[in-house]
Structure formats: structure tokens, C-alpha cells
Design a protein around this nucleic acid. Structure first.
Lengths: 120, 120
DNA sequence: TCCGATGCATCTATTATCAATATATCAGAC
DNA sequence: GTCTGATATATTGATAATAGATGCATCGGA
């Protein structure tokens, strides 16, 4: 995650699940995919990514399996589970709800004050 | 903050600044205002609110002043500072940027997969 | 051989809440 | 006067989620 703000905390699992729902991927590729989709805005550190993957596996949201690439390299590919799919939906819904609520607070000031947001 | 998700962490200062930009308020009223605006979705615990206010005061984003109400009751009223105003703008901008990036990741799955989000 | 890319892992420090708790005082009901 | 609820503030320890720092391994190309 971009070292910008505490605002961004907590979204790691949802992001990971979001890319895994399309197809199974190994850790490094997950990070790359998210990075690419967000135009390099969202980035993981290893210290965040791998513990998160392990935790999600422990929770049963994803399942990991070691594979060997053509080049003979090993990597662990993760796939989303039905439980993970449900969790993703829950988090998406929560996110949308939260986002709306937040906008209701910060957005209302915008519509009333006007000055600051004109410069935003 | 509603005890829902780690997704919601980190937005406390921005929310507080958002209400203070309209007019000075004491702690309890700030919490009430945010709660009301978000239709009871966003709520603070005292353990979060007051340390956050103190920290923001220490950072110079807000300034507090003890007042006495008509009923003779004391309370500490906080007002946003110019520095706080700038910080609010920064955080709003960061939030909007982050929000867009997040949607780019989770939203893209939605538009492609279709099934899950149809039920969202 | 060396370097960069790919790929994974782990640990500590930091940060931001959550939970739990406590104190104080006003206002209204009994 | 007493009790209860609302108002108002404060603090502390536990917990969770990163950020930073580091390390290991291996393939591919120069």
C-alpha cells in the first residue's frame, strides 16, 4: 500500500480477493496486478502481503498450492474459496456503505462551504 | 467508528476536521454531529475520540478552549486552525484518490464478473 | 561470476483503534 | 434528598494491521 495515509489501512484482504476472484495467482502476481490496476497508486510491501495471505488462508478465504513453473521455479498459487467469495461480497458492501457515509460527512461540508473544494 | 471493519480505520481526523470547518464544537458534539450525518453509521468511542482530539491539537490542526455553558457546565470547544484546514484538504484529496484507486481494483472485477455484484 | 527480476518469508516498531473504566455535573423524576 | 440518565471528558491496556527492514532462493542474461 502506498505510504500515504492511515486512511488506506485495512483494505488489503479485499483487494487481494478482488483479483483472485478472476483467477488464481501467486503472491507476487497479486501485488503486481493490484499495482497495475490502480496505476501504481496501490502497492504492497512484502511485510504486508505475505502475512495477509497467510492469515486469509488460515481463515479459509483462499487456498494455496505450490506449483512449479516451466522454468522449474516454485511458487505458491492462491485461489479464492466459496467462503472467500462471500467475504469479498461482505467487504465490498461494507466498503460502499462506509464510503457513502464518509462522503455524507466530508461531502456535506463541501457543498455548503464551497471555497475549499473549489480549489481541490 | 462503527465496529465493523478495519476498512474504516484512519478516517477519524478527517471526519473531525470536516465538522469543525463549519463551526467550533466540543468533543461530544463532534461525535454527535458525525453520527447524525452518517445516519448513525459512523460512531466514535471515547477511547478514540479524545486521544484523537488531543493528538490533532498537538499537531496544531485544531485549537481547544475551555468554555462555560449557560448552565455553568465546563466543556472544551475545538476550532480548526489554518493548518488544520490545509490538512483537511490534503486528506480529502488523498481519500478521493484512494477511493478511485480502490474502485479501479474492486470495481473492475464487478464489471467483468457480473454475477456477484448483481446480488450486491 | 555478477546483477536484476522473480518469489517468498519473517520480525520488530509504529500506529490507530477497540474495550474497559473512571470521574464530574446538570436536569428531571420520585 | 436520592436516583437515573444525559452530558462531557479522560485514560489505559489490548489488539490488529501495517511499515520498514532484512533475509533467503533461484532463474535468466550480460
Amino acid at each position: 500500500m502506498t505510504a500515504m495515509d492511515p486512511l488506506f489501512k485495512g483494505s488489503t484482504p479485499m483487494l487481494i480477493l478482488s483479483v483472485l476472484v478472476e483467477k488464481p495467482m501467486h503472491g507476487y502476481a497479486i501485488a503486481k496486478e493490484i499495482e497495475q490496476r490502480s496505476a501504481d497508486f496501490l502497492r504492497f510491501r512484502e511485510g504486508t502481503l505475505y502475512p495477509a495471505l497467510h492469515e486469509m488462508e488460515r481463515k479459509g478465504w483462499i487456498a494455496g498450492r505450490w506449483e512449479v513453473t516451466d522454468g522449474g521455479r516454485e511458487r505458491k498459487v492462491y485461489a479464492i474459496t466459496p467462503l472467500g467469495l462471500r467475504e469479498l461480497e461482505r467487504q465490498q458492501h461494507a466498503w460502499r456503505r462506509f464510503s457513502r457515509a464518509l462522503e455524507a460527512v466530508i461531502g456535506r461540508k463541501s457543498s455548503e462551504g464551497g471555497l475549499e473544494t473549489c480549489t481541490t
